[in-house]
């Protein structure tokens, strides 16, 4: 008898979930894709001839969540009289944001999220030493096939400025970094998408321009039932 009761309760629960999903179907399925780029990186690439970086940011809405994928390319070429340093690679971020303003009629987005990020890159370091005690020499260290992974907790905002055009900012706290570095006497200096290799945690900020490409009209989310006591 107990077993039958357990089945009935389980079935009722599953049926209730299914009915809720059916009712909410219109708000769950994606209604738009947002595509953008980080304008700070574009500015840096224009004004700093040693550095170039380009990043594409995408997100797809699912219910109140945003499935987010970013991809970036970065190169840093330092040329100094006694050393040169080249870092070249790519990176991606993948994760989920939660839109805290999903009911906003103006479709502005205020979100928090968690992402996994990964980078593949190379480092090439050459230097010259003028030694007053022994002899002058040059050395070159080339480390290829370096990879790094880390997590990012982020908070950000995307504000509608005109039709589908949005401006946004994002703050990222990067943590739990692991680097797959070849045996080398040179210490990893930079990780594309992360920052300085010696830092166990890292803050990052982005300023984005984005465009919203709608697929369909999304019905409004159910309003919260508020009991008004008179």
């Amino acid at each position: 008898m107990k077993r039958i009761l357990k089945y009935i309760i389980s079935f009722s629960f599953l049926f209730a979930c299914y009915q809720t999903l059916q009712a909410q179907k219109g708000t769950i399925l994606p209604s738009y894709l947002m595509v953008g780029t980080d304008v700070a990186y574009i500015g840096m690439s224009i004004f700093n001839p040693e550095r170039s970086q380009f990043e594409i940011n995408t997100s797809l809405d699912v219910y109140k969540f945003l499935l987010s994928i970013d991809y970036g390319l970065a190169e840093w070429n330092i040329q100094k009289p006694n050393f040169t340093y080249l870092n070249k690679g790519n990176y991606y971020r993948i994760g989920v944001d939660y839109n805290l303003q999903a009911r906003d009629p103006d479709q502005n987005i205020f979100y928090v999220g968690l992402k996994y990020a990964h980078s593949n890159f190379i480092e090439d370091f050459s230097y010259q030493v003028t030694d007053p005690f022994y002899y002058d020499y040059e050395n070159n260290i080339n480390n290829a096939d370096i990879s790094a992974g880390w997590f990012e907790a982020n908070i950000g905002m995307k504000v509608k400025v005109w039709k589908g055009l949005y401006l946004g900012w994002v703050g990222r706290f990067k943590f739990a970094k692991s680097v797959n570095y070849p045996p080398s006497s040179f210490e990893n200096y930079w990780i594309p998408g992360y920052g300085k290799g010696e830092n166990d945690t890292q803050w990052g900020f982005g300023y984005q321009i984005l465009y919203r490409i709608p697929f369909r009209k999304k019905p409004p989310f159910n309003e919260k039932k508020v009991k008004e006591e008179k």
């Binding site: 330092i78 100094k80 006694n82 030493v129 260290i141 006497s185 040179f186 210490e187 200096y189």
Partner: peptide, 16 residues
């Protein structure tokens, strides 16, 4: 001894 090369920063240069 073990020798390591470390890039401090673009402006500071490197350290042995």
């Amino acid at each position: 001894y073990d020798k390591k090369e470390k890039l401090i920063s673009e402006d500071c240069g490197f350290d042995l």
